[in-house]
Amino acid sequence: MTPDTLPQHATAVCKNCRAATDGNYCHQCGQATHLHVPSAREFLHEFIAHYVALEGALWKSLGGLLFKPGFLTCEYIEGRRARYLQPLRLYLTFSIIFFALFKFSGMEVINLGEEIPPSAVVVSGDRKAPEPATEFKRAVAPLVTGAGSFNTTLGQKVQHFLDLPRRDQEVALKGAFFSYTPYAVFALMPLFALYLRILYVRTGRRYGEHFLFALHTNAFAFLMFSVLLTLPPMLDFLELPLSLWLLLYLPLAMHRVYGGARLATGLRWIVLSLLHVLSLILAVMVAMGAALVG
């Protein structure tokens, strides 16, 4: 008997967990009891259905995410979950798409300027101005000293990075950005939820609800950034309304999920945005620092 002619009827024992079963699915682990080697078409259909969720859940999730700020969070809290993509999958999907598009878009991430040869100096009167390279080394000398006092090896790596040609420094920083920034940004989600917990401490909501809200709103942000990044020139007129929607989305979502007066929501939004932007800057700086010690 070849693999292509495996029995199509229900098995008495589940092939996966060995539990006794009766019907189309195992009551213990949920695996189908009708087993056969899938054709290429069946395999593709299964991949699309389960991983891309093209059959319903994706479109319902996209519709709620794009046009109803806070809707998916409320649905999840109310227990209506199976019809939508899971929050973590939603966030990871759109964050991966954004960073992939950003990496291959050709946009300049790091620009340290043109490297000036050591012989290029500025003469003012009878005095010779310091070489730019010398001024730069003086400016970063405290960084090298501080790193060296903290850890000798770290200080050596920082010095090695600073001694690299400008082009090599840019390559190292770009590599660090795309290697570490996605993880650093994801690590901010618990912090984003903590900010919400503090801002809405009197609502009695659990931390998990704030984390859920963080995943949904940041998934929307990554989706919108991806759209703006790939917007063709003929649709440039959409850039302004899309940017405004991106700006207004978070306070509208906060009002839907948490309620309260609009003025109070607006104030919380400003505080939350400032804290998150500062956290993002710090996270990117840490990612850039990885280039110094890598």
Rank of each mutant, 00 (worst) to 15 (best):
F225H: 08
R80I: 12
V293Y: 14
L212V: 01
D236Y: 02
L272F: 15
H27I: 05
G204T: 10
I281S: 03
P190A: 14
T73Y: 05
V123Q: 10
L154A: 11
V158Y: 13
G64W: 04
F186P: 01
R197L: 13
L58P: 01
D4Q: 08
L85R: 08
A261W: 04
L191N: 13
L143N: 05
Y183H: 09
E46I: 01
C26R: 03
F220I: 07
Y91K: 01
C26E: 08
L229P: 04
E131L: 02
T153N: 12
L235C: 06
A129E: 14
T73N: 04
P132S: 10
C26A: 10
L85E: 14
R166E: 00
A129C: 01
G125M: 03
G148Q: 03
G70N: 08
A12R: 13
D126F: 08
G70F: 04
A141R: 05
C74P: 00
Q86E: 12
A147S: 15
G125L: 04
D126V: 05
L154D: 07
V123H: 10
I97R: 01
G64E: 10
L275T: 03
S39T: 15
S179F: 03
A176S: 14
T145E: 15
A82M: 08
A100N: 12
V109P: 04
T181S: 11
A219E: 00
G125Y: 04
S273K: 14
A141I: 02
G30W: 04
F67N: 09
S124Q: 07
I198A: 14
L263F: 15
L62W: 01
E239R: 15
L62F: 05
N16F: 09
S149E: 12
Y84L: 11
C29W: 05
D4E: 15
I116M: 07
E135M: 13
N111W: 04
L196Y: 08
L238S: 05
K128W: 05
T152M: 00
A139P: 02
E135R: 07
M1E: 09
L72G: 08
L252G: 11
V185P: 03
H276W: 06
A32F: 10
R80Y: 11
L173P: 14
Q169T: 01
L154I: 12
T21V: 15
V293H: 10
